[in-house]
Simulated scan of single mutants.
Amino acid sequence: MIIQARELAELFLAGEDEKAMDAVLEYLESHSHNELYHDLLTPAMYLIGDWWQENIISVADEHLATAICDFVVSAAELKRKPAHGIQRKVMVLGPEGEDHYIGLKMVSSLFKEHGWQVQYLGPNLPLDAALDSARRWQPDVIAMSAALAYRLPALKVYSEAFQELDFNPSIIIGGRAVASADISKIRTEGTLVVKDLPQLKTWLQTGKEKEDDLDISI
């Protein structure tokens, strides 16, 4: 029987890393990695985030669940065969103060699947360090995310700073806060807003998000 998001969340919270891994491997026998990330892992972690916000679970519980989810994502990634032949580069990061990173790893995985070179810098990266890395590596795309609404202004600050770089990288912003909030006030021209992994996959395959009035093309 294929595991559901709530069941997987409960395994994460119970510290059942081996059972969680077995369930995910069974899921991958009949589903793609993209389905794993979008339809199973993301809803499971959203549930855990909701339970934490509602004080149903503790901070320690949330950290345990995140660590096991990280283990599962990393193990699942080893079973994915990356594409080859594309020379484009993407830098993936979370702004300073943003500690959530599972979504960043899923985004990195999706870019790798489409043959991109990925520089994964993780969460909570100071702007100066991000700019320094960008100048040295000169990625075609810089992707960022925010899980909580009060981190959205930081995405705008980072986006504006990256848009000043002389090699003109495309900017992508996403994450739970982006997917659920009205971000019109922090959106900047030339920034692609990605609300879920299927939308990002479409953009990677076509080079353009047609429904977005601030399209960026690759």
Rank of each mutant, 00 (worst) to 15 (best):
H84G: 10
Y37W: 05
L93Q: 01
T188C: 08
P123V: 12
K195D: 08
N168E: 12
T42L: 08
K81P: 09
L192R: 07
V193R: 00
L47P: 04
A147L: 15
A146H: 10
I3N: 00
T206H: 02
V141T: 13
M1E: 14
I2V: 11
M45V: 01
S109L: 05
N34V: 05
V118G: 01
D61K: 06
T188V: 14
L121H: 03
I68Y: 13
S74T: 12
G85Q: 02
E98G: 11
V59D: 03
E164W: 13
E26L: 14
F167H: 14
T202H: 06
E113S: 07
L110T: 01
P126S: 01
L197I: 14
H33L: 01
L131R: 02
Y46S: 03
T191W: 07
L200H: 01
H100A: 14
Y37D: 13
S30I: 15
H84K: 11
W137Q: 06
S32P: 05
L41V: 09
E96H: 10
Q205E: 11
G97R: 03
V107E: 08
Q117K: 15
E189K: 15
I186F: 02
L204E: 15
K81H: 07
L204F: 13
L125Q: 09
I57C: 09
K201E: 09
E96I: 06
L192P: 10
S145R: 06
D215K: 14
M91P: 04
S145N: 04
V73K: 01
Y46Q: 02
Y27V: 03
D196T: 12
G97T: 09
E54T: 01
G85D: 00
Y46D: 03
R136P: 04
W203V: 05
L200V: 14
A75M: 10
L165Q: 09
